[in-house]
Design a protein around this nucleic acid. Structure first.
Lengths: 308, 308
DNA sequence: TTAAGCGTTGCAAAAAAGGACACACCCGCA
DNA sequence: TGCGGGTGTGTCCTTTTTTGCAACGCTTAA
């Protein structure tokens, strides 16, 4: 939209942290960009950016303004998709932010199914750590978030949440696979493969260890859950997974999953959320609906772990 | 704001119902305006207006778009006032839509008090019939509405509501002023002065008459409540008022107020509201707060009419 | 002290927007 | 049925706005 150019410029400068940097991204000269920023500040009758020697930074008025700008841009997208929706072809773009546990396992099938119905809809899918996920939502850079163990639920409107008992992934021929359920000490003593501190799964394991006075020292630590699963399949140790990500992804026959012994470890929660009070574009809203349905369907299918 | 010119143009055309008409309002030539409209339609990749021989009209895509445009303009105002507020001076403009019963009696004092604290805030105040009031809210042409007996509460977020028993206004020396409370038949037989059909007060009286099988024929009917009150003061008959508008306006010693006999007539409700989910500009929000407080304070002061 | 980065400014060129006018069209009315 | 007044729109030309280029003054880090 041509008429939002000025706002795009402000957004770019705020992101880049400098006028020259933003100018390069926008493929215009710094002087032109600078003049537009000055013009906007004059119209608002207040400065939006603090000028420093190494660039610019939003001041408090600027924070207010940039929030308006981003909300406006997001809302325009919503209107466009709504308009497209009434002319028959559903188009749009759905931006999803996830934590690493979710990875590429939970969503691909659903996205593919959705795109089969609406090929005009495109997706972007990025994994961050937990704090960043929530910030993506706040900055309107993500429409939907899927995350395990949110830090703060502020600003987040829950679309669906499901309780998840951690499940131990191991090679099918692993000796412990003979047991129907595992004790925490056994897990810790057979080469635990864990995500780094700060992620939701790790947090839960650490909490359980503290409670039992055990020492949690992973054999291998990685932020790539596919890598950990791969190692488990090769017999390198024991990885952890969430029931939903197991259930919703293609079966890997070489892997066996076993639950922990009841009450040894607390369950966590998998959340799907959007920004509080925000009107999502049609495409994102419909996708979120399907996501919720899929979650509920899959949780139905899963063997119930009773918590009496 | 210069960067919203295009949107202002669309809004003007939608309002005027023709490009030439809007062009005159905007003080530009029709051809220039036409080109901008065409450009916007091209950017949206869809037509916004239906072209007819007698002008243009929004199509359904246009309805969606114009709603976005107006929301955007309103939100920008909010941000401006928020920015101004953080630099200490509260500025802004508060647009109030009321029904005629409210008239100029309920609000002037409060507005004056508010402006004494914040002279940078200006007000506009218009009276409409009930349907139009709600439409003003919906079209973002009013920030706050004050109305008696809303038709539909859709889209309206209630800021405050107060039950109001109608009170009969008469000359202080009117024979009926001797009675502590009036019967409906007495009211009807002593020259009732009523607002026209469609307004809230009239609706309540009509309902009470239907219930009792009485005939409601006002001696004088007018949409100007000040005029009716004036007539009552001169002994021309009996007018009706709401407790809050009496209480909050300067005392008129020549007027006596008497309640109806209990249960003869249903009470109505006076509402203060804003558009559902909308973020009001600072000035409007603070004013709405004061309005609510004033209502509650005044209702406290009023003699309670018990409804056992 | 120097060098590199930054925002900012004057000036000329390019681009966008606007004005004036003419045209084609549709509608109500004679 | 033709006519007049209303509409949106296209074209040419002028005016205004925006941009690119080069230079300046400034702060910071080496």
């Amino acid at each position: 939209m041509r008429h939002m150019l000025a706002l795009k410029y402000v957004d770019a400068v705020a992101r880049a942290g400098s006028i020259r940097g933003a100018a390069e991204v926008l493929a215009i000269t710094p002087s032109a960009l600078n003049r537009r920023i000055l013009a906007i500040e004059e119209e608002l009758d207040i400065e939006i950016f603090e000028r420093h020697a190494q660039g610019v930074r939003l001041n408090s008025a600027g924070e207010l303004f940039i929030h308006h700008v981003r909300a406006q841009m997001a809302d325009l997208e919503r209107v466009r998709s709504q308009i497209a929706d009434l002319s028959g072809v559903r188009i749009g773009h759905v931006r999803i932010a996830t934590t690493k546990e979710i990875g590429g396992r939970l969503l691909p099938r659903l996205i593919q199914a959705y795109r089969a119905d609406f090929p005009g809809v495109t997706f972007s899918l990025h994994a961050y750590d937990r704090g960043q996920v929530e910030q993506q939502l706040h900055n309107l850079e993500a429409d939907i978030v899927v995350m395990f163990q949110p830090l703060r639920l502020a600003d987040m409107q829950v679309i669906s949440h499901q309780q998840q008992h951690l499940s131990v992934a191991m090679a099918a021929d692993h000796p412990l696979a003979a047991q129907p359920e595992l004790r925490l000490v056994d897990f810790l003593e057979h080469n635990p493969l864990l995500p780094p501190r700060g992620e939701g799964i790790r947090e839960i394991v650490e909490a359980a260890c503290v409670k039992k006075g055990l020492n949690c020292k992973p054999t291998i630590e990685s932020d790539d859950s596919a890598l950990l699963r791969h190692l488990a399949r090769q017999g390198a140790g024991l990885a952890l997974d969430l029931p939903l990500t197991i259930s919703a992804s293609p079966q890997e026959s070489e892997l066996a999953y076993r639950p922990f012994k009841a009450h040894e470890i607390e369950p966590g929660f998998l959340f799907v959320g959007q920004l509080h009070k925000r009107n999502l574009p049609v495409a994102a809203r419909k996708f979120a609906d399907q996501l919720r349905e899929m979650f509920e369907r899959e949780m139905e299918r899963l063997p119930k772990i009773e918590t009496p």
